[in-house]
Write a protein that binds this DNA or RNA. Structure first.
Lengths: 216, 216
DNA sequence: TGTTGATGTTACCGGCAGTAACCCGCGGGG
DNA sequence: CCCCGCGGGTTACTGCCGGTAACATCAACA
């Protein structure tokens, strides 16, 4: 076995490499079978059997979380790049939205997996800790955006909290609209981006009522 | 053969009543056990056994959908009321947001169930029909809001499509922010409502940059 | 050589969704 | 009066999944 080329207790990154291989196999299966990929299928794809997966990731939620972290990191890098590009604010928002939509458009299976992960863990708690149930991806995106907004935009007193509200709100808007758009494809990506940006730019407040209808 | 409207056993609508009883039992179980409620548990709560549930609802997704429709209808009624109240536009938006948040605050278990229902069905299709995976509740809310906006607000040419984009976007914003808020409770409900409304009213566009930081 | 520890396997458990096959009371026709 | 069909109900099963215990293999080291 070509391994252990250097003496001592196994080379430093062997475990890490193995882990990455497993994650890539899991990725392939999830990409092929959707979120209902079974541990057996993932293990088979990786050329091993279930207990090894469990030794590496604890349980299914652990594997899913590891997968999610990978993809979320990648997506966050893209989004940060768009958010940091030198341009005026509206252009940044547009290109960030477009980056997100392009990502989910390119790999809808991955996206779907990220949005509906494990759901359970134990969490048999009372009504407490109702949180953290949904996709952690959305939370991370929301917090990240909140941080960017909070440290760059002057929102006056209480701005930190307002930034968090906006961060999660904007991310949710992006997500839901993207989800719907990905399913129905009612328009080009650019149209969706423009529409959402208009919404964020307050066009709902300034638009007039229609002559017909009860008004709004 | 219809029926035997006399004689105690079956009267017109008996099936409907039975169905409602079953749904109420299912509701109780879901409220108690969360989204992982099993068909066995639901059947036991209803005082019957599994196959009857399957005769009534086909499969678990069918039961879940029936439950979801009930709650979604109820929630939609509340929201429509808030949306139709006579007041200026901003007040309507605020009271609609507040109604939604009050609902999820009052019954977080029901809310969680509605947001993460079945996930599977068969749907082993290719990349097609990627849609309708997530909670149908969000889709319904989005379409409903799109309709209200589209028929009341003058959005110029292409307004129908823009209204749909906004409908789904606003609903997603409301949902994600509510989800986060419900989990962390970082502020009072009214603060969240105000923050989101500010966002929709374009405050992101008009806010200035902070002196420190790279600007936005 | 024998021990130890990592690595991998088989074989199993409990629980779930979903189904097949049986069961029982009741009304109607001979 | 008896039997027959039929709708509502149950028991008992299949197949799959997540998760685990116990066993097997092999390298390195004393």
């Amino acid at each position: 076995m070509q391994t252990t080329q250097e003496a001592g207790a196994s080379e430093p990154g062997a475990g890490e490499r193995r882990r990455r291989e497993l994650l890539e196999a899991a990725d392939r299966v999830v990409l092929r079978d959707g979120p209902k990929a079974s541990m057996n299928a993932i293990a088979a794809e990786a050329g091993i059997t279930k207990p090894i997966l469990y030794r590496h990731f604890g349980d299914k939620a652990g594997l899913y979380q590891a997968l999610a972290v990978r993809h979320t990191d990648a997506l966050l890098d893209s989004l940060r790049a768009a958010l940091d590009a030198p341009a005026e604010r509206r252009s940044r928002v547009e290109s960030t939205l477009d980056t997100y939509l392009a990502a989910i458009e390119a790999r809808p299976q991955v996206y779907r997996f990220l949005m509906h992960p494990a759901e359970d863990s134990q969490s048999s708690e009372r009504g407490f800790d109702v949180g953290l149930h949904s996709a952690p991806l959305l939370r991370r995106l929301g917090e990240e955006l909140a941080q960017v907004v909070g440290e760059r935009v002057d929102l006056g007193p209480g701005g930190e909290q307002l930034a968090r509200i906006w961060g999660h709100g904007i991310v949710g808007m992006m997500h839901a609209a993207g989800d719907w758009w990905l399913g129905e494809r009612p328009c080009a990506r650019a149209d969706l981006v423009a529409g959402l940006t208009d919404l964020l730019w307050g066009r709902l407040a300034t638009a007039g009522n229609r002559e017909d209808g009860p008004g709004f």
